[in-house]
Design a protein around this nucleic acid. Structure first.
Lengths: 357, 357
DNA sequence: CTGTTAGCGCTTTCAG
DNA sequence: CTGAAAGCGCTAACAG
């Protein structure tokens, strides 16, 4: 395949300088005469020189590359995370290699090994449900790691995530403040990482309002269709909730389908609040009120912690939890038959008015 | 940062064999005794050896890595392309590094240079609108390249795409077959790669039916909002079309919004056919009829051509154009006031019944 | 079947 | 300020 690429040696010789000098030019090192520098650059241009980062990384023992492991990249939250991390990294002349685990622990492990073989300088990971093997591998290799989004109670590695319980508490208080009393929280499964915390926040807010008896938690299943099927009877029952709070993308999709099946109108018959915002929520009318993850800030913290670890590998693990704002749009309103009490509650100070992303 | 990783030399010495033998084990070379092999593997396991692919690539002059350049990865079409290409590559023990151009020619060029520095063995690219600089760079480096999806009339590189004109012809004939006569084709701009071909196919079908006078092509702009605003007056005019064919994701979103604004019902008041299928089209009721790109087949051809070029770099460029099936779902029906003529036309033989992805 | 050796392209001392 | 030389970890060629 393709003939040999031009090397820095050829560039140097064409420029009439030594190999070392040429190297210094490309690495912005001080101590190269202006004229030499100029000639090196010209020679490189003329020859179409592209430095071999394999050789550089091998010699330098750092690659200025970080690995980013996400379950998937179609999900708007992960996509934004990737995008922001990439922006920061590129601005610091780091590269990022993205790999996807597809929620499969084995694939995750295998992809991480590939990143390790590439000698990435650090790793940011949104782990799968059971990532113990992956974690062990990472610990063994003593490479800086930051866990993002799906954090467990006590992570060995530094972690960055939204404060899930606080976020659902906030959302629940929003619905309560509108006059709702019968609330349902819909999420796929509490076995997933953040889900338990989300349920907990919901229940805490209901308890604080003395409404624990009227709090319903629905776990209809992992798919959109299971959610639709599981939620539909609840929505059409006599004692149906007046508001539904969905704890994940899939749950939101499933509930929307169930609402259509039930022929209900949002927010007249039912209020809906979603966890995680989506780009495509904009096709829906009315616009869906949502808890939005501050992905840019999350990515910023992950980067900061990771690069700090490059300097000082043995610092204690930091654990960041950020508040997630509530974006009140059109799907949350007073319950049917009630007069809305638009008094703004203190708890709503994080609420943001809903400009679309 | 992190202490030195274990090398193949350490593995070899622990296993009591020579460096070369250890290397042969990891590369599956014949001629290693079963016992030696076993001991090497054990030593590697015990030491947590992870081969340094930088060193291997440097020495071997091939990295078993391909670069994949896409505008973006949130778009379902690109996402599927990436996914399929990755699946094939991994199954052949190749790695793929994905970079995103964000539709920015400069960023595209810069990202390609980074891939070149990593010495990828080949490149698959979905180019931006003006990728001449990128293209020149690639030609200079004589690296195998396949252009995917956004192909131009005469590409220097091998190319793989859908036959856009044929696809819109098929879609248009579907609408005509249902009895529609006043059709509008909505797309962002004909300056974009495939868009011109899509418009052409639409017009060709209308011309063939003797309806060129009633064919409308709308170019409302690049954004969803511009599309909504541009299309709305057309939908509410007295001589409104009875069916709309959207030529891109953005156009579809914009039209859906306009339809909602106009208070129209689909398909009772208006039929809608979309180019490109989306996962989230499933939230919409009724299900949107769409032209689906055969992403798996596209990826397969791209891979085949690329790897063929590894063997024989100078073979003439192949140009693949695949048919795109029409998935008739619920948004395309007979026009208002017409009796549907459900006679299946010959041209529909590519039509597939609409199972959701 | 196993061991030795040269060198991939680069960065980084260290002398000049 | 510049040049020569060593070596990062690995594979491939060749000698035993």
């Amino acid at each position: 395949m393709s003939q040999r690429k031009t090397t820095i040696r050829e560039v140097a010789s064409r420029a009439g300088v030594s190999l070392g000098t040429a190297s210094n030019v490309f690495n912005g090192k001080a101590g190269v005469g202006a004229e030499s520098r100029q000639r090196v650059l010209e020679a490189a241009e003329a020859l179409g020189f592209r430095p071999n980062s394999l050789a550089a990384g091998l010699r330098r023992q750092r690659t200025r590359t970080i690995g980013l492991v996400v379950p998937d990249v179609l999900n708007i939250v992960f996509n934004e995370l990737v995008e922001h991390l990439e922006n920061i990294a590129l601005s610091q002349s780091y590269e990022v290699i993205i790999v996807t685990s597809r929620e499969d622990p084995e694939r995750e492990h295998e992809r991480v090994r590939a990143l390790l073989s590439r000698r990435v300088d650090g790793l940011v990971i949104v782990p799968t449900r059971d990532w113990s093997a992956t974690e062990r591998e990472m610990r063994h290799h003593r490479i800086p790691v930051v866990v993002l989004d799906r954090v467990a109670a006590h992570d060995h590695f530094p972690s960055v995530a939204v404060d899930n319980a606080a976020a659902t508490r906030l959302g629940t208080e929003h619905l309560l403040g509108l006059g709702h009393r019968d609330l349902a929280f819909v999420i796929n499964s509490t076995r997933l990482w953040n889900s338990a915390a989300r349920v907990e926040g919901f229940l805490a807010a209901m308890r604080a309002a003395g409404l624990e008896k009227r709090a319903r938690v629905l776990l209809p299943g992992m798919t959109e269709e299971e959610t639709r099927a599981g939620v539909l009877p609840v929505l059409t029952a006599a004692n149906r909730p007046t508001a539904v709070f969905t704890g994940s993308n899939v749950a939101t999709l499933g509930v929307l389908r169930a609402v259509q099946d039930a022929g209900m109108a949002i927010p007249q018959d039912l209020s809906l609040l979603a966890f995680d915002d989506f780009a495509w929520l904009t096709v829906l009318r009315p616009f869906v009120s949502a808890i939005r993850q501050p992905t840019e800030a999350l990515a910023g913290h992950a980067w900061r912690i990771l690069t700090a670890a490059f300097e000082a590998p043995d610092r204690p693990a930091e654990h960041i939890r950020l508040p997630a704002p509530l974006i009140a749009r059109e799907t949350t309103a007073a319950p049917p038959g009630k007069v809305k009490a638009p008094r703004r509650m203190k708890a709503f100070k994080d609420t943001v008015d809903g400009a679309l992303p």
